[in-house]
Design a binder for these strands. Structure first.
Length: 561
RNA sequence: GCGCCCGUAGCUCAGUGGAUAGAGCACAGGUCUCCGGAACCUGGAGCGUAGGUUCGAUUCCUACCGGGCGCACCA
């Protein structure tokens, strides 16, 4: 269904176009082709409900000052069939449209009808899109970078779904390569240590307590049965046990965090199936591959990289990059129209070469978008919490959820642009006060629920929008609230298409603010039945949108707090 | 040194090729006999620097300054 905003704007755009064409036909305006003008909501309310820059864009072609072009278009506009009440020309040549404010009321019956589907659009036209995020090594627990990726990726996926895309959420399991080998060495050392042997722990091993815990559980289950084995087999068995356990832990944590994946894709499977060999063969056939110093190289310099990249090490084992090429080829071959990866800033250097590899294989690299998110700094008591994997000291996602809760964690990770470094204030995140945006938004929802409880106690019910005189909603606070609600579908679509989940966090906060202003200045439950009914409809619709916005970010919408 | 990201109010951050650049916090003052005070209102101050493109630049380009992250036969 078309949103109210879309249809209102659409009408005006058509009227503008017709006016320009009519003026051209009458010889009053000269141009070859109509430029791509915009009709947007001006920053200043005084500049009307919508404004267009068409006159300024036409000025050159028309060989006339912009304001004169604006006058000519204005005099040819037929406002019939639009909500336009008045048109003004202002500034350097803007055409400002002032609408009969009744147009905004249209949205309330629409929300009533659509319920939690309000805000959805068909911007994506059902196109298949894949969002791959977190994809942590199953060698440890999830850290803050993974956590931000989880919140961002899942919210982006939610937004894309709402915007009409068919979304697949995917986790790429890095269960191959050096990290795993290293895990094996670490596990073995801990295993032997636990059984009383004096072995040296590998310098660059995984120092975390979780490795020790894993080994303890294994000993509990199997005792010392691995003691007498040869190292290679022992490591393999230890790895097998640890991977299974760690992956399960990751799955559980992410589920707790509100993230449900459609696909868990194993890197090892690409090695086992021969997919990596096949893709390297393909690249070799296209002459992008050469051998040097015992290793196999891919000519990434042909795609703007500073130096070529190794795909098969001299020990014969393919690198992570080789697996990644095979993996992304696999993604394209699964028919996704759009492939989105969420990566930490520490991986940005791979973007160019991965896209280059896709181009080399004949895929359109523009269908692959990589969202690079900047790093997270945790603050507590005004101090930075230093984390280091090496020392085994880091706050895990589980720790964070235990400390501040799922809702606060998800909101804080999403509220900033991915491009922005995130200072995560743990004290603020868990504070139950108005300064905490999470509570501020959720409180708006709880307040609305409270109004309905009051209503019920008084024996009242929420009326149907069609049975109300919505035009009684004429206070500024009411109109601004409705206007914000009107924007919701557009906000979702923009946030989705541009991969900007923070927009929805902001939107939710602003919406809650407008509701609080309304609530504070006007009573919903009053002794004027008609006004009360109209306001009940407005509040009900606000509740729907607040709830939906919270859900898109993966937060709960509490009925009381 | 090279590459990517960032530099906007005291702090944390939005934002836009255009008409008077916003929010939250902090600070100061105020509101409410009333549906939940986890609320609301008022106030000040800002686009890192220097050029360029443009009718118009905070936005695009270049250089510089400052910060983060990369620059492995790790992932």
């Amino acid at each position: 269904m078309k949103s109210v905003l879309e249809s209102v704007k659409g009408q005006i755009i058509v009227a503008i176009r017709q006016a320009a064409e009519k003026a051209k036909t009458e010889g009053k305006l000269n141009y070859d082709s109509l430029p791509e003008f915009v009709l947007e909501v001006p920053r200043e309310k005084e500049h009307g409900d919508f404004a267009t820059n068409i006159a300024m864009l036409l000025a050159r072609q028309a060989k006339m000052p912009p304001r004169q072009v604006a006058e000519i278009i204005n005099s040819h506009i037929d406002p019939e069939g639009t909500w336009v009440a008045r048109i003004e020309i202002a500034g350097p040549g803007f055409i400002n449209f002032y609408l009969n404010s009744d147009w905004v009321y249209e949205v309330l019956p629409q929300i009533e009808e659509q319920g939690d589907r309000y805000g959805n659009s068909d911007a994506g036209q059902g196109k298949k899109v894949q969002v791959e995020f977190v994809s942590a090594n199953p060698t440890g627990l999830l850290h803050m970078g993974n956590a931000r990726g989880a919140a961002l990726g899942d919210t982006i996926a939610n937004l894309l779904q709402a915007a009409g895309f068919t979304v697949t959420r995917e986790f790429y399991i890095n269960d191959a390569g050096n990290q795993i080998e290293n895990l094996g060495k670490s596990l073995e050392a801990r295993y032997l240590q636990q059984l009383g042997q004096d072995v040296v722990f590998p310098e660059d091993g995984y120092h975390g307590q979780d490795i020790i815990d894993t080994v303890k559980r294994l000993i509990e289950r199997d005792g010392d049965k691995y003691l007498g084995m040869d190292t290679a087999l022992r490591r393999e068995l230890l790895i097998q046990y640890a991977l299974e356990e760690k992956l399960q832990a990751i799955k559980n944590t992410l589920r707790e965090f509100g993230v449900e994946y459609d696909v868990w894709f194993s890197e090892q499977s690409l090695h086992d199936s021969g997919a990596i060999d096949a893709v390297l063969e393909e690249l070799r056939a296209k002459a992008y591959i050469y051998e040097s110093e015992g290793a196999v190289w891919f000519k990434t310099t042909e795609f703007g990289d500073e130096k070529d990249e190794v795909v098969v090490r001299s020990n014969g084992i393919p690198t992570y990059f080789a697996a990644d090429i095979a993996y992304h080829k696999n993604k394209f071959d699964r028919g996704f129209a759009w492939i989105i990866n969420i990566w930490g800033a520490d991986h940005h250097g791979h973007v160019k070469r991965l896209k280059g590899a896709m181009k080399a294989l004949g895929y359109d690299p523009d269908r692959l978008d990589i969202v690079i998110m900047q790093l997270v700094r945790l603050f507590k008591g005004g101090e930075i919490i230093r984390m280091s994997k090496r020392s085994g000291e880091f706050v895990t996602l589980e720790d964070l959820m235990a400390e501040v809760g799922k809702d606060a964690a998800r909101y804080f990770f999403v509220m900033r642009s991915p491009d922005s470094h995130l200072d995560f204030d743990m004290d603020l995140a868990k504070s139950q006060s108005a300064e905490n945006p999470v509570y501020y938004i959720q409180y708006a929802h709880a307040r609305i629920c409270s109004i309905f409880r009051q209503l019920k106690e008084k024996g009242g019910t929420i009326p149907r929008a069609g049975d109300c005189n919505l035009m009684l909603l004429k206070e500024t606070a009411e109109l601004e609230l409705i206007r914000k609600i009107v924007d919701f579908p557009h906000e979702i679509a923009e946030a989705a298409v541009n991969l900007e989940p923070h927009r929805i966090a902001r939107y939710a906060h602003e919406l809650a603010g407008l509701f609080h202003v309304f609530y504070n200045s006007h009573r919903v439950i009053t002794d004027e039945p008609d006004l009360q009914n109209a306001r009940l409809v407005l509040v009900k619709c606000t509740q729907t949108v607040v709830r939906r916005a919270l859900h898109l970010m993966g937060l709960t919408a509490p009925e009381s707090m």
